[in-house]
């Protein structure tokens, strides 16, 4: 258009904001509908057990190594930082409980989920997006295979179930690594370290961590499958969708983490 827009900048900005909100709500609804339709196939034949297995393998087993590495280094750095802070007050013996509570309640589920988004979530969006571009989704339709049941459902279920398992592994490795740094390297009393750890952790901490992981896993599955499925069927479309899937998932995880934490504490 060659007309010069005479609207004041303020109105344009407000209009843009309004439009953005409406689009976001529309997308949110669309994603909810898409995943609801897909999840409905959970109760319908044919079962997608084999495809769920394959997704567990690709998404769950595939993320093991990155989870182990992030878990180990998170535990190590927590022990190191915690030690120097606590040493100022002469309460190094609290190191075990401090590390354990931070990992179990927050860092395990949140960092684990963020790494999972980068490793598994992006690959989900990219894969489904490419299936869209190369008409594989249409090809499935033409071969009387429902893409909701075959492509979306197994991925959502796999992310939902895999993330709590991965986060638990993250937790255990993180705790072990913090023990190594705290006790073996920095010389905190082994008994104080583990004793404090055991004494301060209550079952609710564990439940909260697992529930977070479960919710985040589901969220990653829903967002990333939606982004891929609704990707613009071009190369840039898929690239954009992948970036967006990672950004939206990560931000949602952080926001939802605050909400869940405020409920559980």
């Amino acid at each position: 258009m060659s007309t010069v827009n005479k609207q004041p900048a303020m109105f344009q900005m407000l209009g843009g904001l309004g439009r953005w909100c409406l689009q976001s709500i529309e997308k949110f609804g669309d994603a909810a509908v898409l995943s609801a339709i897909s999840l409905a196939h959970l109760f319908k034949r044919p079962w997608q057990g084999k495809h769920f297995m394959l997704q567990m393998y690709a998404l769950g087993v595939g993320s093991l190594i990155i989870m182990a590495i992030t878990g180990a280094f998170t535990g190590m750095v927590l022990a190191l930082q915690g030690y120097y802070t606590l040493a100022k007050f002469g309460s190094e013996s609290l190191l075990g409980s401090g590390v354990a509570l931070s990992i179990l309640r927050e860092l395990g589920p949140v960092l684990g989920a963020l790494m999972f988004v980068g490793r598994a979530g992006s690959s989900i969006t990219a894969e489904i997006g490419i299936m869209r571009v190369t008409e594989q989704l249409d090809a499935l339709q033409m071969m009387a295979i429902n893409p909701h049941a075959r492509v979306i459902l197994p991925r959502i279920i796999a992310t939902t179930l895999a993330l709590p398992l991965l986060v638990s592994l993250f937790d255990v490795i993180g705790l072990a690594a913090s023990y190594v740094v705290g006790v073996e390297l920095l010389g905190v009393n082994a008994g104080a370290f583990t004793g404090e750890m055991v004494a301060k952790v209550i079952p609710m901490d564990l439940y909260a961590g697992w529930l977070k992981a479960l919710v985040f896993g589901f969220l990653v599955g829903v967002i990333c499958t939606y982004m891929g499925y609704r990707a613009e069927p071009t190369t840039e479309g898929v690239a954009q969708a992948t970036t967006q899937a990672v950004v939206v998932s990560s931000v949602s995880i952080l926001i939802l983490d605050y909400v869940l934490s405020s409920i559980f504490l």
């Binding site: 571009v133 190369t134 594989q136 249409d138 090809a139 499935l140 429902n146």
Partner: peptide, 23 residues
């Protein structure tokens, strides 16, 4: 109905522009 459509699709085949093989 989707179920009926899928039954009919047994009688249909399609060759897509970019082949659309499952990679």
């Amino acid at each position: 109905k989707q179920k009926r459509l899928y039954e009919l699709r047994a009688k249909m085949g399609m060759v897509f522009q970019y082949s659309a093989l499952l990679n």
